[in-house]
């Protein structure tokens, strides 16, 4: 009798929840591909072009700080597709006026084209496409964190849905090319801004976290203006702040040798 009551009670309590869950799923939870596509656009393809002033502060475990300052220009060839980046360094002083230019290819089989301009030598250098899991300018951010990891590189699985977040688990299709076994991305349900990325190593231990710590609306576009990456293994962390963010600035095609040798005013000022 007691058992029957318990069963009825459990059923009674859980039925409405199942119903609610089903309603929610059909109305509010898109499929995982839609989620990751939207989040990718929000994180890396806002506006048709844009600019920002970036400050990176790298803090080692011993609390030694190093700073990088650069101005960045971006132009999209198509949303979710190819992009061009122009990075003009201001700090540290020994790389001041150096320019790093990338023609990013969304096709994972095609390597990005990269150039470096060294002003003291007036040298336009072509750089071999490198491992995208390499540190960007000595910080805890990797190239892939800054310019985006191609969605085609991973399989995606929606593992959790809360009131605020979608949590997507991403598993690499070629595990031997990366240092993680998988990573989870927590995506804001309203804005689709990726709020947190958690990377797990081969022993399924969390070792690296990237958090969006400040999000602002700029030209009605939700924009991460501060993010922090923590390397739990080395104890090092890097904070990246964006200032003077502007979208749709009608950037011409400055992503060519002419402007390496003489950077446009958008970045020198």
């Amino acid at each position: 009798m007691k058992q029957v009551l318990t069963v009825i009670l459990v059923l009674a309590l859980s039925l409405p929840m199942v119903a609610a869950g089903e309603n929610g799923a059909s109305k509010e939870v898109p499929d995982v591909e839609t989620i990751v596509n939207k989040a990718n656009i929000v994180a890396y393809y806002q506006g048709k072009d844009g600019k920002a002033k970036v400050t990176m502060t790298i803090t080692s475990k011993q609390d030694q700080k190093r700073q990088r300052k650069f101005n960045i220009l971006r132009k999209d060839t198509e949303d979710g597709g190819d992009q061009k980046y122009f990075v003009y360094f201001q700090k540290p002083a020994d790389v001041r006026k150096m320019v790093f230019m990338v023609h990013k290819h969304a096709d994972p089989d095609k390597d990005d084209d990269r150039w470096l301009y060294l002003p003291a030598l007036d040298l336009v250098k072509r750089i071999a496409a490198g491992d995208k899991r390499t540190s960007f300018v000595g910080s805890d951010f990797l190239y892939e964190d800054v310019s985006g990891r191609s969605l085609k590189e991973d399989t995606h699985e929606l593992i959790r849905t809360t009131d605020e977040l979608f949590v997507v688990k991403n598993t690499p299709k070629k595990p031997d090319t990366v240092e993680f076994s998988y990573y989870n991305v927590s995506i804001d349900r309203k804005t689709y801004v990726p709020m947190k990325m958690e990377f797990y190593d081969q022993e399924n231990k969390l070792y690296r976290v990237i958090e969006s710590t400040k999000v602002e609306m700029i030209q009605k576009i939700p924009t991460v203006v501060k993010s922090v990456v923590s390397d739990l293994k080395t104890g090092s962390k890097t904070e990246m702040e964006f200032a003077d963010v502007k979208y749709d600035i009608d950037l011409e095609d400055i992503f060519q040798e002419r402007y390496l040798r003489r950077p446009p005013r958008e970045v020198t000022r």
Binding site: A128, A129, G130, D131, R133, T134, S135
Partner: peptide, 10 residues
């Protein structure tokens, strides 16, 4: 010919 042969090693 230039290539990255390992991480941060060209």
């Amino acid at each position: 010919y230039t290539q990255e042969i390992a991480q941060d090693f060209t």
